[in-house]
């Protein structure tokens, strides 16, 4: 523990020193030696810290966080030190600078792509998939017909319908939402059907012996036991929805939106801005996913995968 902390402290100090050096002078041999030393020291520190089990936050947050910092640091030092052309790979500092100076533009793109198309499409597609699954569940015949098709759709590049949706619904967010609805519908349908079927025979027999009718069994037994599956689909869909929203904008859009920004700024070779937009998309995607995971934890606290952690 002590060696680990010392190594990390040394690495942090070295990193700051080398970054300051890089600001003032051209990279020398001593500078590269410092970079190598920082890398080795942080690796030793991580190696030590990775073997600590308690308290939990060291393994769960500190180690990956420090590793992420190390990657960022190496990215910065290598791109600036080796003078990599910014067109190939801009340094994180440049991307951050671009991000901060264009906050207004980024916010507009975010509102257009995420708050309008992605959220609308995600809610409609997942909601529709869920409702259809609950309805279809009453008919084993339809279920047997839909499940193989739903599985087939997962092999199909659904993004390809984007040009058609742009033709049907116009350039604005409605067409993007439509693409997302189609993309998110089937994962939700398949997962919800599987989840509704997951309630065990014993539990069902118990409900039967309580003389519970269909609606009661659904509400008290089968929907709760389907929840882990539903949340799994929601998490899959959160990524799909962002991808669908961005890619659909490549086919035509009003002059705002993350996909639009990416394709336009690439045309102008303004790679910093592209990376900044990707950073926003990455942040939005992770926060979206994380929020869903938190909600899932609240709803399915009884599930074994969460109970195990606490004990």
């Amino acid at each position: 523990m002590k060696t680990g902390a010392a190594a990390i402290a040394f690495a942090l100090a070295g990193a700051v020193a080398s970054l300051l050096l890089l600001e003032t002078t051209a990279p020398t041999l001593a500078f590269w030696a410092l970079v190598v030393a920082v890398t080795i020291a942080s690796w030793i520190g991580l190696e030590r810290l990775a073997h600590i089990d308690k308290p939990r936050w060291i393994g769960a947050i500190l180690v990956p966080g420090l590793f992420g910092l190390l990657l960022l640091y190496l990215w910065q030092v290598l791109t600036v030190g080796l003078e990599v052309p910014p067109i190939l790979l801009p340094s994180p500092a440049r991307i951050g600078h671009q991000l901060v100076t264009n906050l207004d533009l980024e916010w507009q793109d975010f509102r257009q792509t995420f708050l309008k198309s992605v959220l609308a499409g995600f809610v409609m597609g997942s909601g529709l998939g869920f409702i259809v699954a609950v309805l279809v569940d009453r008919s084993p015949f339809l279920q047997r017909g839909l499940l193989p098709l739903g599985a087939l759709v997962s092999a199909i590049p659904v993004v390809g319908i984007a040009p058609i949706m742009v033709m049907w619904f116009g350039f604005d967010w409605e067409s993007k939402a439509a693409v997302i609805v189609v993309m998110t519908f089937f994962p939700m349908l398949v997962n919800t059907l599987a989840g509704l079927a997951s309630a065990g025979g014993i539990e069902r027999d118990l409900m039967h012996s309580y003389a519970a009718d269909y609606g009661q069994t659904l509400a008290k037994l089968r929907l709760p036991s389907a929840l882990p599956f539903v949340f799994n689909a929601l998490k899959i869909n959160s990524t799909l929805a962002l991808i669908g929203g961005i890619v659909a904008e490549f086919f035509g859009t009003p002059v705002v939106g993350m996909g639009f920004r990416i394709s336009v700024e690439i045309g102008r070779m303004n790679v910093d801005m592209v990376w900044a937009t990707i950073a926003v998309a990455a942040l939005a995607g992770s926060v979206f996913y994380g929020t869903l995971a938190l909600i899932e934890r609240g709803f399915t606290f009884w599930h074994p995968s969460y109970r195990q952690e606490r004990s």
Binding site: I87, V159, T239, I243, F250, I278, S286
Partner: peptide, 14 residues
Amino acid sequence: TIPILAIAPMIIVV
């Protein structure tokens, strides 16, 4: 959780 596909055009250009 990141829409990696968004990077696709850039990788092509780079």
